[in-house]
């Protein structure tokens, strides 16, 4: 053991965790993030989802019900995506995340910087959000992840 070596412990990446920084708040990217999280949870991986900036805004209470925004580069597809989602009975990104939490460990944290910037309190967010954390707490999770994504 090298507990007193003064060196940082050389923790091996934990192959069973996926960390996602969810920066975006458009429905298309939320969908992509939710599918990644659900897939990883179904595969038995732990998922750390860190919401920041527009990702936090998308989790304000009730917002997901009316969020039809899509990425600016494909803005003309916004209504098409909504129509196809409805026609094909696709599950919403929020439903995906709820399903993921039913079967696995999906921890959802909101960025304290964004919360302060936009005067958002944790009670203003959907109850699916577990807590508010800073960047260090997220990095601590991310550095022990086999997969890290920024969406």
């Amino acid at each position: 053991m090298f507990a007193n070596s003064g060196q940082e412990s050389a923790t091996a990446p934990q192959a069973n965790r996926m960390s996602i920084v969810l920066f975006s708040g458009t429905a298309d990217k939320l969908m992509a993030a939710s599918i990644m999280a659900t897939g990883a949870a179904a595969m038995g991986m732990d998922v750390e989802l860190f919401l920041t900036t527009w990702g936090v805004m998308a989790f304000r209470k009730g917002d997901y019900r009316t969020n039809t925004r899509v990425s600016a580069d494909y803005a003309e597809y916004g209504s098409v995506m909504q129509e196809q989602m409805a026609a094909k009975k696709a599950t919403s990104w929020m439903e995906n995340l709820e399903g993921a939490r039913e079967i696995g460990h999906v921890h959802i944290a909101a960025c304290s910087h964004t919360m302060e910037l936009f005067d958002i309190k944790v009670e203003d967010l959907e109850p699916i959000v577990d807590e508010v954390i800073g960047v260090a707490a997220f990095i601590e999770q991310a550095r022990n992840s086999a997969i890290s994504l920024f969406i």
Binding site: A42, K88, A90, I103
Partner: peptide, 17 residues
């Protein structure tokens, strides 16, 4: 049938439990 990704594996993981 008719479920889009990722629902089939979610359904499978749920049922398998």
């Amino acid at each position: 049938r008719g479920q889009m990704c990722p629902m089939p594996i979610l359904s499978l993981a749920k049922a398998m439990r």
